[in-house]
């Protein structure tokens, strides 16, 4: 099944992505497997800094993420609920 952004209020197809190839999938798994030991070996405070930063960026960008005209229809819900608080 292709990955498609469709505006459910109009039926308009906005953007389509093809599925990743098997080759890309296995490469992603190998990369993840390789990344695991270094990530797990990091002290909590280092991981905490990065995950905390992710949370901060999400909050900073929430208006854009929730309402970008290019992909707004991936969230058909009233905008307040497409954000997170």
């Amino acid at each position: 099944m292709p990955y498609r952004s469709v505006n459910p209020a109009t039926g308009e197809a906005l953007k389509t992505f093809t599925e990743h190839t098997d080759e890309r999938m296995w490469l992603a798994l190998a990369t993840a497997d390789k990344a695991f030991h270094a990530w797990a070996a990091r002290p909590f405070r280092e991981r905490s800094k990065i995950i905390g930063k992710s949370a901060q960026i999400l909050l900073e960008k929430k208006e854009n993420l929730a309402a970008s005209p290019h992909w707004k229809w991936e969230r058909e819900s009233p905008r307040a609920e497409a954000k997170w608080s």
Binding site: Y3, H20, A32, D33, F36, I50, I51, I57, E74
Partner: peptide
């Protein structure tokens, strides 16, 4: 149905410093 959200979220994590391979979006 939400590929662009999937990519946007991955991009945020990358921007925050999540290393390659730690979080990977796949279609």
């Amino acid at each position: 149905g939400v590929p662009q959200c999937a990519l946007a979220f991955e991009q945020v994590l990358r921007e925050a410093g999540v290393p390659e391979g730690v979080y990977t979006n796949l279609f």
